[in-house]
Design a binder for these strands. Structure first.
Length: 491
RNA sequence: GCUGGUAUAGUGUAGUGGCCCAUCAUGAAGGACUCUCAUUCCUUCGACCCGGGUUCAAAUCCCGGUACCAGCACCA
């Protein structure tokens, strides 16, 4: 009976990792620091970290910064990524590894590859080699002697070749079924004179640089990585690297893949494109609320907890998926509501004078479900109040928590304090308790500025409040707020 | 073209031969509560890509389609 119920129960959280035992799991996540972290990176961080938690393992953050031209690293990104990862996972990475600091290790292994004859220096052009790959024929360089390879390698290191002229390949088999695996390139040359590495301590020091598949494979072994969780676009990487591991006599880590994720509301944002757009001034910075970056999300009030719940819920299936932001927002609402002080914000305010008998002050709850959060005191002596112009299509309104009123030109006549009928309830604000403010809203990649009157408060910058009848918003400064969850575009 | 991968409600997800006329979340619609278009609670809607086969029994195994995605870069 009991067993039946257990097997029927829905699996919670992530599935078990194969071949994993507590205390012996080493995981890593390796972004390219060519910009700060994006929404998609959060998946790698969250999933890897949850597994670290489950198995009491080690989590490594690694910077794969081995390309200085196509995807040049951004110097500021290194620190920012560590900081963002810490924010997201609630914990600093156990280890931070920077590939560009580990070049000697990669050289050492390249050397060994040539010495032991499972790698060679190839002087074919990219096009020429492509022919060999398609035709399943060996290129002439493949049969060079070990001594020739060693000599060529020395010349490479000395800088006797130009980028594009020579490359180090892993000897696999040119007749392999999968063309992607045939004698794949492991290291190449980069012109670091005209494209220096942005880290000053690296700069133009090296001309020979490892490619991802080689660098990553060697580094995973050096760091003792046991499980790799990566996108399925890297499935062939696994196969290439497994071939290399066989040559070295190593055992390849267990791998798990996830599919592609698209967000309905965001098209294809690439880090390189965002970087360009920011430089061109189309966005204010990496934390612009319109951008799908971690910084952008954080700075408009999306909590790390919501991001974590979101990604754990999606799990690690290999399906390519497309998710609406509404799902993330629903997680964020859960994370934020109980602690969000309520505030009144009147957009496009119209002034009215309160006439008739009424109390001179009013006390409102900071949070309707939590008395402990205190009260808000409003002063009604002056009598000037703000109403939202959109609410004025009715002349009889109920001012929330206060009174039934009848509107005429400029007066709001108090008809009674208790609710007497089903007239609409609207939010409002005494002028004396309010100040001018702007509410930012992202919509269709635009930034809309709603001007209005905001209830005075002393919540610090970064507080997520709830603007009654509008939505959750984060305090940016004394007169600016940003809406956390923009309205859905497809109702 | 070659190679590999994936297909469960609108969107995600659970499910590894009988507990499944299929789980949970989200969404939509309705309702309760509430002096917010919030929160909370309740109800309803809605799916196993198609066609064969194996089996007493298939979402689950096999075969064949179809669709979508990825790799075949001196990017990561």
């Amino acid at each position: 009976m009991l067993e039946k119920r257990e097997t029927k129960a829905r699996r919670e959280g992530l599935p078990e990792l194969t071949n994993a035992s507590k205390g012996e799991v080493v995981l890593r996540f390796a972004p390219n620091p060519n910009g700060p972290l994006s929404f998609g990176h959060a998946r790698g961080l969250v999933i890897n970290n949850r597994y670290r938690e489950m198995y009491d393992g080690v989590f490594i953050l690694r910077f794969d910064d081995t390309d200085t031209k196509v995807k040049p690293p951004l110097l500021e990104a290194y620190d920012q990524i560590v900081e963002e990862a810490t924010w997201l996972t609630g914990r600093a990475p156990d280890r931070v590894v920077v590939a560009s600091d580990r070049m000697e290790h990669y050289y050492e292994h390249a050397q060994r590859m040539l010495d032991e004859g499972f790698g060679y220096v190839c002087r074919c052009s990219a096009d020429a080699f492509k022919e060999h790959r398609i035709g399943q024929t060996n290129c002439p360089c493949r049969s060079q002697s070990i001594a020739d390879n060693q000599a060529l390698w020395k010349s490479m290191l000395k800088g006797s070749f130009k980028p594009g002229e020579v490359v180090v390949r892993v000897k696999t088999d040119m007749t392999l079924k999968n063309p992607a695996l045939r004698d794949w390139p492991a290291l190449r040359l980069q012109d670091t004179k005209s494209h220096p590495h942005p880290r000053p301590e690296i700069g133009s020091t090296y001309v020979v640089w490892p490619l991802l598949d080689f660098q990553s494979a060697v580094e995973d072994h050096l760091q003792g990585v046991t499980h790799i969780i990566r996108g399925k676009d890297l499935m062939d990487s696994t196969r290439k690297q497994t071939l290399l591991y066989e040559h070295f006599g190593w055992t390849y880590p267990e791998t798990v893949y996830w599919g592609r994720v698209k967000v309905h509301e965001w098209g294809g944002f690439s880090t390189s494109q965002m970087r360009k757009d920011i430089e061109d001034g189309r966005y204010d910075g990496w934390n612009d609320p319109r951008l799908p970056t971690l910084a952008g999300l954080r700075d408009r009030g999306i909590k790390a907890e919501a991001l974590r719940d979101f990604w754990i819920e999606l799990g690690v299936t290999q399906k390519d998926i497309s998710v609406p932001l509404a799902t993330l927002y629903s997680h964020n609402t859960k994370a934020v509501d109980a602690g969000a002080p309520r505030l009144s914000f009147v957009r496009e305010p119209i002034a009215f004078s309160l006439v008739g008998e009424h109390p001179s002050s009013l006390e409102l709850a900071v949070h309707p479900n939590d008395d402990a959060m205190g009260i808000r005191a409003w002063n009604l002596k002056e009598g000037k109040v703000w109403l939202e112009s959109e609410d004025l299509d009715h002349m009889d309104l109920r001012l929330k928590e206060f009174a039934d009123v009848a509107l005429n030109d400029t007066n709001a006549e108090v008809q009674g304090l208790s609710r007497s009928d089903q007239r609409p309830i609207v939010h409002w604000l005494p002028a004396i308790n309010s100040q001018e403010a702007v509410l930012l809203e992202t919509k269709n990649n635009e930034l809309i500025r709603h001007r209005g009157q905001l209830e005075q408060h002393n919540h610090p910058t970064g507080t997520v409040v709830q603007l009654e009848r509008i939505g959750y918003a984060m305090v940016l400064d004394s007169e600016t707020l940003v809406l956390c969850h923009e309205e859905s575009e497809t109702p």
